[in-house]
Nucleic acid binder design. Structure first.
Lengths: 233, 233
DNA sequence: CAGTGGTCTAGACCACTGA
DNA sequence: CAGTGGTCTAGACCACTGA
């Protein structure tokens, strides 16, 4: 465990339990670093983490403050199940594959694991009102989520399962979106012509501790799906 | 100007001009820092910037490598010009059309105007380093933005113009993203094969008063552009 | 084993704010 | 003016990879 994460965790707890209240200022960095027994640079790393999470607000030449209650919902992030339900569609899933596997270089990098570490591989075809809408492939760290292999994921939301069973809550996702064409195999799965347009999203999801939960790609058919966002600045 | 940004800029240029080619490894951090005349920590700050931009790929105990060729992009909501500049690409525009026009049902609804109200129609081909990357079509209310018709939009950012000239600041955008195929005409504009994949975004942008600034669609070529987001909840 | 990126330290100077 | 966060330095040790 790194000092930076320990310090961030400590500050996070003191904010959540109300010891550091909303809008209150943190002590000066030099004082706080000494009190916590770390260098100022390390403390600043922890503060940056919490600022990125939206818990702290920094201003040059001013003390860093605890953020207000305003939820800065830059881009709301939902599970497939939640998204379909808000759109008024019935979601369900067909599990195409679910196995223990071994992380290659790319998966390991995304999950912050070592190459060769055990992972869970899950491939699901996701339906909206009985029409296949997306092909999802995801990897999770085996050590933390092994229990999923024994559960029924066809009807339940993955996120609600890991929250209920493990108390793990996804709070942040880094996502990229690009346009691609369906390969022959993918086209067959959707019963669409080869070369149909599709949205490919790649996502890495984190819990409130900054731990990676999953690395996932989702391939959405282009003729039925449109992603929507609200962006602020 | 900070040393970190200067170093990041230098590396960015060396990547762009091909001196550091795709998939090639950077020199060891200790060597590179000395060659650039900065401390290793400062160099690492620059490397982190470029990694966040998607230009570099880091792996523990391995040399940092130059990423593949897709332009990947950052968080919140930026103008095309801003986005390209943070990526280290020179943005410019070719104005294909700019006229006063009349709002049809769809445009009127998006701009919160009446059908038949006067609007400005602007069609721009947007370049990153002299390569056409996106075809943008946008509508603005004529009453508020008539002065744009007299200005040079080829080299300046639309957002910076309306902020400087009118004090209007875009702060929120509702956006949708879908995957489409290029039509014959569009493919010709990008010099790509007909049927190439593309990202089509539709955007309505608001100022801090909640007034609509623009309704826009942008067609990004799928082979060179990837949208990235950070989502929270 | 030497090489590598990841982390951390204990300082330093800077620009800016506000009394 | 003292206080503050932002940046930077020149080291250090660590865990890990691969020869």
């Amino acid at each position: 465990m790194f000092a930076r994460d320990q310090v961030a965790g400590q500050l996070r707890r003191r904010i959540e339990c109300g010891e550091l209240t909303a809008e209150s200022a943190l002590p000066p960095e030099r004082e706080l670093a000494e009190a916590l027994g770390v260098s100022r640079m390390t403390l600043r790393g922890a503060i940056e983490q919490l600022a990125n999470e939206g818990l702290l607000v920094r201003q040059p030449n001013r003390r860093t403050r605890v953020a207000g209650d305003k939820i800065s919902r830059s881009v709301a992030f939902m599970s497939f199940s939640e998204e379909m339900q808000t759109r008024g569609w019935r979601p369900h899933s067909q599990i195409r594959q679910m196995t223990a596997a071994v992380a290659d270089v790319s998966v390991a990098a995304q999950l912050a694991l070592e190459v060769g570490a055990k992972v869970i591989y899950l491939e699901r075809l996701r339906f909206a009102d009985d029409e296949p809408l997306a092909l999802e492939r995801l990897y999770l760290p085996y050590a933390r989520f092994a229990l999923l292999l024994a559960l029924d994921l066809a009807s339940q939301s993955l996120y609600s399962i890991i929250e209920q069973e493990l108390g793990v809550r996804p709070v942040l996702a880094e996502e990229s979106v690009e346009a691609v064409l369906l390969s022959a195999e993918e086209a067959g799965i959707f019963s669409l012509p080869v070369g149909s347009p599709a949205l490919l999203t790649r996502r890495v999801t984190y819990d409130d501790q900054g731990q990676v939960i999953e690395a996932a790609t989702s391939l959405y058919r282009g003729d039925r799906y449109r992603m929507t966002l609200v962006r602020r600045r």
